[in-house]
Design a protein around this nucleic acid. Structure first.
Lengths: 65, 65
DNA sequence: ACCGAATGTCAGGTCAACCTGACATTTCTC
DNA sequence: GAGAAATGTCAGGTTGACCTGACATTCGGT
């Protein structure tokens, strides 16, 4: 699923480890999300959206319409 | 995670099987979601939101912030 | 009260989304 | 160019979100 995670992280000047810590996930999980090998759980998607202060749909593109 | 799935389904007059078919998931998956034993994947959450025509956050309550 | 439809539950399986730890490669800074 | 930091990759493990199939219970219509 296409997403804006790397863009948002870099805009904050955070490392992948920084982001992982703030989201309470591993660095490898951040890599997998940024490289679009994993979709986040809904709960993690909500944590990400809250952290960046934008709606989930602005970070993870809804592939259904 | 608290959600409005049962309310929305019943408002449409659909059975759990009807909803499962429209979402391409099993009837048992619908039961698990309605009874809040499972959170949906982000992709399924998007399918649900698109089916009912409302934002994801209106169906599944964001527990963060 | 009966019957069928709807709902709920249980057992057992698969797979993707997480995890840790280790190592390789790339990029930044001096 | 050397060292450190950041990024990427791999192996192997756990768990929850799905699956099917079977059976039990509850509800609605006649």
């Amino acid at each position: 699923m296409k997403n804006q995670l790397r863009t948002l992280r870099q805009a904050r000047g955070w490392t992948q480890q920084d982001l992982g810590t703030r989201l309470a996930v591993s660095r490898q999980a951040v890599i997998a999300l940024e490289s679009e090998r994993h979709d986040p759980s809904l709960d993690l998607a909500y944590r990400i959206a809250s952290l960046f202060g934008v709606p989930v749909e602005e970070i993870f593109e809804n592939p259904h319409r």
